[in-house]
């Protein structure tokens, strides 16, 4: 009996040990996937000796968590996949230093300085090269019956919700709901994230999908992805929305200095080069150029949307997605 108690106490001690106290720890809530950003975070720790503890989950999930936690949150930094979830909790963010905000193009930073973009991504329509269906010329073509049952979407994914938010800003709620309902009526294949959509399109399980541009390039870097292509919808509507992943500092942080260093690191040449060469996104500082055969951002036909406003309609976006029956 005594040894049993000892074992139990020992087990608790071991597990509790693993999760250390906050202390000087920088706690990051990351809506970006571990596979993509952990190496970069490890680089940060190596160069600054600041220990980082990361909570990986979906961007929208983390935004909701932060709001639920409120002022008592232990998180120091929110590193999100899209400006909508980033901005959803902007009231909890502190204003970033002007030098940080000035390092990127103004359209990739929050108007009130609550978050800054770290890398650019473009929404794209991935398609299997064997498909005989005519590729969409506008975003509305995606709901055409010729794509019935063949389009992959990730309705809870931050980027998708940001895209829906942008549509609300561009077209209004009613038109957006109509589009979502048309999509839902077209038997979309739903996935939890973007990566499986790209893999499925490449494998021929689906003919197309709504994702971000860089997933295919990453797949190709691993030797796959030869049976699919990125299609940038020519109309230049929200189908080719450009938006950054971004980062914000929580005002309740107990390590503001470390948090600031983390943000500055993400905008440093080292990190921006990582985003360009490893994740195939668009770097946002002028010193680094995109790679992987990508054109400059300015050369893409993309819509003109005020990204700072996306967060204001995120709630409506999730509500409409739910109303349309996509979740």
């Amino acid at each position: 009996m005594r040894w049993a108690i000892a074992v139990v106490v020992g087990a608790m001690a071991i597990t509790a040990c693993g999760s250390g106290g906050s202390g000087d720890l920088l706690i990051v809530y990351s809506g970006r996937s571990e596979e993509l950003v952990q190496p970069l975070i490890d680089q940060f720790t190596e160069s600054t000796s600041i220990e980082v503890e990361v909570r990986y989950a979906g961007s929208t999930d983390l935004a909701a968590t932060l709001l639920q936690e409120g002022d008592s949150t232990e998180a120091d930094v929110f590193f999100a996949q899209d400006p909508a979830s980033l901005g959803a909790g902007a009231g909890m963010h502190t204003e970033l230093p002007q030098s940080v905000l000035d390092s990127v193009d103004p359209r990739f930073a929050d108007r009130n300085g609550r978050w800054v973009g770290t890398s650019g991504r473009v929404r794209t329509f991935i398609y299997n090269t064997d498909t005989s269906v005519e590729l969409p010329q506008t975003i509305d073509d995606v709901t055409d019956p010729s794509w019935f049952g063949e389009v992959g979407v990730a309705p809870t994914n931050g980027s998708f919700l940001a895209f829906v938010s942008a549509m609300i800003l561009e077209r209004g709620e009613d038109a957006t709901l109509e589009w979502l309902k048309a999509l839902a009526a077209n038997d979309p294949q739903d996935y939890p994230k973007n990566t499986p959509i790209v893999a499925a399109a490449d494998a021929g399980e689906i003919e197309g999908g709504l994702v971000n541009h860089y997933y295919l390039l990453r797949l190709r870097a691993e030797g796959e992805g030869n049976d699919s292509e990125n299609w940038f919808i020519p109309a230049g509507d929200v189908g080719t929305l450009v938006m950054p992943a971004g980062v914000g500092i929580l005002s309740g942080t107990d390590v503001p200095e470390s948090a600031r260093q983390f943000v500055e690191f993400l905008l440093s040449e080292a990190a921006q080069t990582y985003f360009a060469n490893e994740t195939f996104e668009f770097p946002l500082i002028p010193e680094v150029q995109p790679s992987g055969g990508l054109p400059a951002l300015e050369d893409l036909n993309t819509p003109d949307i005020d990204l700072s406003q996306l967060a204001d309609v995120l709630d409506d976006a999730t509500r409409l997605v739910s109303e349309a029956g996509l979740v």
């Binding site: 989950a57 929208t60 999930d61 809870t156 294949q189 999730t318 739910s322």
Partner: peptide, 24 residues
């Protein structure tokens, strides 16, 4: 979740992780 069949449980998680409002 992995086999993508929508039951109550899957819908609950989708609502939890995909909405800012935790109430639904």
């Amino acid at each position: 979740s992995l086999l993508r069949f929508d039951t109550f449980t899957r819908a609950i998680f989708t609502l939890y992780a995909g909405q800012i409002d935790r109430r639904p």
